[in-house]
């Protein structure tokens, strides 16, 4: 059994079996990360380049750690100190890197579809670490892994994705994944930040009242307000956003049940999520970060197995 895909470009392309395989392999890697020696020699002689055209702290460190725990050779490329700043095209940059015998490319880019474009032109396996407002598959996988770890299942789980849905690749990847795995998905937030096609095209429930969304869900995945992607104001002020849509202790106390709070980070504390909620026992935000390394190790491992056909 192996993945049905050579690249990990988005959850959209994965089968439910692919997702299950990644999650179960991640369980084994999580055990590896509890060992006295956390490094395994699995990807010896595999060279991976981390190609980050957009800022990232968590994802880049998480990928780099996953690669190093697997003993891969790692090359880091960030746009600020590269030839891309001199005007080299994406394809030229990657072809130049690949001619140095690289097996895999982990890529983040501000343009949606950039990794899909590359996948058509180069031989190396590509992992999408976030492309524009399209997908961020490893984030959705680690979110699913964390939900499953905390609540035991995905099937039938009620998940509310809250906040800036329109600019969020995390939201889209999560929606694809949760639907494939049989969870119920609702999106909630200000009408200006929720594209209505989610309901029309994908049958996702939309709830503009945050309190109703919280009362409905088992898990609230709270997204970051992405101020850097908003060219025009879509809500009046951060303070007003917090009052109307922020997850506060007050709101959670009104619920009749405990819900799990998630956030992909980085948190705007006091905007979409209050500090006392983010740091409360309901929050599994730091578990998400920890699980991220194991999930990425699983993705790297399963895709490497396909870099060379059986001879």
């Amino acid at each position: 059994m192996a993945l049905t895909t050579k690249h990990l470009l988005g959850i959209k392309d994965l089968t439910t079996e692919d997702i299950q395989l990644i999650l179960s392999t991640a369980t084994q890697f999580k055990e590896v990360l509890q060992r006295p020696v956390k490094k395994v020699p699995t990807l010896r002689d595999i060279t991976i380049v981390n190609l980050f055209y957009e800022n990232s702290t968590r994802t880049r460190i998480s990928f780099e750690l996953a690669e190093k725990r697997l003993s891969a050779d790692v090359v880091n490329f960030t746009v600020s100190n590269s030839s891309a700043a001199k005007g080299e095209t994406l394809l030229d940059t990657v072809n130049n890197i690949l001619s140095m015998k690289v097996d895999m490319v982990v890529m983040r880019h501000s343009a949606s579809g950039a990794p899909h474009y590359l996948a058509k032109h180069i031989d190396a396996a590509i992992i999408n670490a976030g492309d524009g407002i399209n997908e961020h598959p490893t984030q959705a996988l680690l979110d699913a892994f964390s939900m499953k770890e905390k609540l035991g299942k995905l099937q039938g789980l009620k998940v509310a994705i809250i906040g800036d849905i329109m600019h969020s690749r995390v939201a889209l990847s999560n929606i694809y994944l949760l639907k494939k795995m049989g969870a119920e998905v609702m999106v909630s937030g200000p009408p200006t930040l929720i594209p209505t096609y989610l309901k029309e095209a994908m049958g996702i429930q939309i709830e503009y009242n945050i309190d109703k969304a919280l009362a409905w869900c088992d898990v609230a995945n709270v997204l970051r307000i992405q101020l850097e992607r908003q060219n025009q104001p879509l809500f009046s002020s951060l303070r007003e956003y917090n009052l109307a849509y922020g997850i506060t202790q007050n709101r959670l106390q009104k619920l009749t049940k405990e819900i799990v709070i998630m956030h992909p980070g980085p948190i705007n504390r006091g905007v979409e999520l209050d500090s006392d909620v983010a740091d409360s026992p309901h929050s599994i935000i730091l578990d998400q970060v920890e699980n991220g390394v194991a999930v990425r190790m699983a993705c790297l491992y399963l895709l490497t197995g396909r870099t060379q056909p059986t001879t």
Partner: peptide, 20 residues
């Protein structure tokens, strides 16, 4: 003990890990 991640043939064949 599962030894999948310590094998020397990953480029030839993908093995699935079991519980350690």
């Amino acid at each position: 003990l599962d030894i999948t991640f310590y094998r020397d043939d990953i480029r030839h064949q993908l093995h699935l890990a079991t519980q350690t």
